[in-house]
Design a protein around this nucleic acid. Structure first.
Lengths: 104, 104
DNA sequence: TTGACATGATACCATAAGGTTTCATATATA
DNA sequence: TATATATGAAACCTTATGGTATCATGTCAA
């Protein structure tokens, strides 16, 4: 329920790279793995962590699994930043509120 | 130079809690430690990680060290989110750009 | 149905990470 | 100057984490 899983997932550079790739297009595990110098199993683990953090969703398509970027997880992290609004100024605070409202 | 250290620092819940405390007021190491059920040494380690991620700054004041929230680190993470603007819509994208500009 | 293909899952390994304990150092203050 | 205070730092322990290798399972195609 908390954003912990999302923050945890974002801590690894490989996982952040995967998210950037998925921002361009959905990909199967094998397709994602092609972009890294590590085994498919390792990539699969990263995808599981990303899934745990609600940063991606996975839908089966035949024998393949299509990984898709999920804004929910990103939103959780984005929301957390809201706590620091007071640290910035009121105007930014209002803009953030507006963005959050629309992202739901 | 990258945001890796900041993301890494944010991955731990204790460190995120520390940041929230510092958003309210600057604190010495001992003061931060009072709020957690762990040794001062452990808290000091967390503060070092936060400092590595540019999420806090530390200024000596006599024999004490005052820890202060540093928006730079938060901005690095916030900036990273910019990559996903296209994933949201144009209006949100513009709002984000506006926020980022002002946060510099 | 048989084999190739895409993924799931488990066991195992080395290193990173979060904590503690202990001792050293710097700075107020009586 | 002596002593208490606030922090720095190193050594050590346990668990989490990122990877690999290996084998099982499900699905497509001939």
């Amino acid at each position: 329920m908390t954003a912990q899983a999302a923050f945890r997932a974002l801590a690894d550079p490989t996982r952040r790279d995967i998210l950037m790739m998925l921002a361009h297009q959905d990909m199967t595990i094998a397709e994602v793995a092609e972009n890294f110098d590590m085994t498919r199993a390792a990539v699969k683990k990263h995808l599981s962590v990303l899934s745990d953090g609600n940063l991606i969703t996975v839908r089966p398509e035949g024998r393949a699994r299509i990984n898709t970027l999920n804004p929910q997880g990103l939103k959780q992290v984005f929301d957390w930043f809201g706590y620091f609004d007071a640290f910035w100024d009121d105007r930014l605070s209002r803009l953030r509120a507006s963005i959050e409202k629309d992202m739901q």
